[in-house]
């Protein structure tokens, strides 16, 4: 069966502690519940969550939507934002998990990635290296979200042209963002041969960055 891999990279640095990370979890849970009511997504979507703070971790490896449960996320008190390391882990997971079509096997659909951060990369050197490396991996879409006033937009533009920003880090903004991602994933799961499904128009809480 051809899977639609979705990689979610979540900033879990100290500033996400407390209300923001809970709002993100609530948003993610709503997204899971909404995707599981969509038969296209339920049959094809596989999700992985990678968190990053002082280190990048695989919170959940690529797992099918049926049976996916969202673990607790506990950001440390204070920590840097090692986004570069997270990209490195994403690339390594991509190479390990995403199945390409060869004469002997049928490949996955082009993967989709969502990156959410409320700061900027602390590991600048690695980050710059990894943004170049990432270009070798083919994605249907990479959406980067700069959450809140402290989030740096320019580094995210090195990763993808699809950058959005949230003015505030309240539960409403996060809810709207994940709802929007859910729609984008749903749309992607319905395509049969297109590799560049356009993103749906975002709600007013989400600003497209040009």
């Amino acid at each position: 069966m051809r899977r639609l891999p979705i990689y979610i990279l979540l900033d879990t640095s100290g500033s996400m502690r407390g209300e923001p990370i809970e709002a993100v979890r609530t948003g993610l849970r709503a997204m899971l519940s909404s995707l599981s009511r969509d038969p296209y997504a339920l049959e094809t979507v596989h999700l992985s969550i990678i968190t990053f703070d002082r280190e990048a971790r695989i919170l959940v490896p690529l797992t099918e939507l049926e049976g996916f449960s969202l673990p607790n996320i506990e950001p440390p008190e204070t920590s840097p934002t090692n986004l570069g390391e997270a990209l490195e882990l994403l690339i390594s997971q991509y190479n390990k998990e995403v199945i390409k079509t060869t004469p002997d096997q049928k490949g996955d659909w082009l993967p989709f990635a969502v990156i959410m951060t409320d700061g900027g990369p602390s590991d600048t050197k690695l980050f710059n290296e990894m943004t170049n490396e990432l270009k070798k991996c083919r994605f249907a879409k990479i959406v980067a979200c700069a959450a809140g006033p402290q989030a740096k937009i320019d580094p995210l533009r090195k990763i993808t042209s699809d950058v959005v920003s949230l003015d505030t880090m309240d539960s409403n903004s996060f809810a709207k963002f994940w709802q929007w991602v859910s729609t984008a994933v749903s749309n992607q799961s319905q395509t049969t041969d297109s590799t560049h499904e356009a993103l749906p128009p975002p709600p007013s809480e989400i600003n497209l960055v040009f």
Binding site: R2, K100, T101, K106, G107, D108, W109, L110, R138, T191, T192, D193, S194, T195
Partner: peptide, 9 residues
């Protein structure tokens, strides 16, 4: 005829 990823022909 197929491509590297699913859905290409």
């Amino acid at each position: 005829d197929g491509g590297e990823f699913a859905g290409q022909t």
